[in-house]
């Protein structure tokens, strides 16, 4: 990924002739480097995954999880949630389809919690921008939160807080058309995936990089540390709260995380913010409102918020 740093240096300090280490040149350098790096990786990863994507259609996941023992279905739901990308519009049909297949509510929720937090695009981007260690920490924490959240909802027996009409829907057994067959079809499919997914994500990525660049160049580290550093005991719950109305996909938040960590913010606080932005968002909550009564929504948001806060404090205490 060195090449993107070199290119950004060349463009900002060479071609534009800006003096190094000023707020503007720092922000610009960050912006150019991250836009190049992230879009390059995004296209690459989406393309490669596109080759295998059809194997993980939600319809297939539903079949895999249906009628299975919880010992199998909980870990499987969390794992599949992490590798199955789906547009947040699909969370409603997915939710109903899972329940209809007899998949327990807790397992379904575990899937819904993990899915927006962890996906292959975010994982590759995390590895290349923040290193393997942070990535492993993020992924494992995300899986644990999904598992715990699902288990708690399972234990509480909240089925009566799911909208009644959901239980009445019967899913048809239509034979779905086969996915792309053969190398050529898979290649074309992967290219289409790149167009569709990059077409959907680019505003979040640009927005995220712009915020990251602004933080990098213009916000003094001391000031940020005063508000969100170790001296502020409420930094973790605050960053979770801030994350709820902020909606970004896990990919878009990465450049912001990168800038915050570089400023020296504690890992736990940054993790809490990142998870909250990715997994708890108003659009997602509005979407789930169609299938969940408000009590259940409150439990859902509550469990996630508490888990993120616990995660934040734990990491700040131990790292």
């Amino acid at each position: 990924m060195e090449v993107f740093t070199l290119f950004a240096d060349w463009l900002v300090y060479g071609v534009l002739g800006l003096a190094p280490a000023t707020p503007l040149s720092g922000a610009l350098q960050f912006f150019v480097e991250d836009v190049g790096k992230i879009f390059f990786l995004l296209v690459l990863v989406v393309f490669v995954i596109g080759f295998f994507r059809s194997m993980l259609a939600p319809e297939r996941v539903r079949k895999m999880l249906g009628g299975r023992n919880r010992l199998f279905s909980f870990p499987a739901a969390v794992g599949l949630g992490a590798v199955t990308p789906f547009c947040s519009c699909s969370s409603v049909p997915l939710f109903i389809g899972f329940l209809e297949a007899g998949i327990p509510l807790g397992v379904t929720m575990a899937f819904l919690i993990t899915s927006p937090m962890i996906n292959e695009i975010a994982v590759f981007l995390l590895i290349s921008t923040l290193g393997l260690e942070f990535t492993v920490v993020y992924v494992v924490t995300g899986l644990v939160v999904g598992l715990v959240g699902g288990l708690v909802i399972d234990r509480l027996h909240l089925e009566h807080w799911v909208e009644d009409y959901v239980w009445k829907i019967r899913m048809g057994e239509s034979a779905l058309p086969e996915g792309p067959q053969g190398l050529k079809a898979r290649f074309d499919y992967a290219v289409d995936q790149v167009k569709e997914i990059v077409g959907r994500l680019w505003p979040y990525v640009l927005g995220g990089v712009a915020i990251g660049a602004g933080l990098h160049g213009f916000v003094p580290a001391e000031q940020l540390m005063r508000y969100a550093g170790p001296e502020n005991p409420f930094a973790v719950p605050l960053s979770v709260l801030i994350g709820i109305p902020l909606y970004s996909n896990a990919t878009g938040i990465i450049p912001v995380v990168e800038a915050l960590l570089a400023k020296g913010l504690p890992v736990g606080t940054v993790l809490a913010l990142m998870m909250s932005v990715a997994a708890l968002s108003l659009p997602e909550i509005m979407m789930l409102k169609k299938v969940l009564k408000w009590q259940m929504l409150a439990v859902f948001v509550g469990i996630l918020a508490v888990s993120f806060i616990v995660v934040g404090y734990l990491f700040n205490a131990f790292f």
């Binding site: 699909s90 049909p93 239509s174 058309p177």
Partner: peptide, 25 residues
């Protein structure tokens, strides 16, 4: 939603032609 799932489709958009699902997701 009931109608969409009735066709066995969970990932949208889906396309149904003369009652047969030809595309999903």
């Amino acid at each position: 939603m009931g109608a969409i799932l009735g066709y066995g489709v969970m990932s949208t958009p889906g396309v149904v032609i003369d009652g047969k699902v030809v595309h999903a997701g």
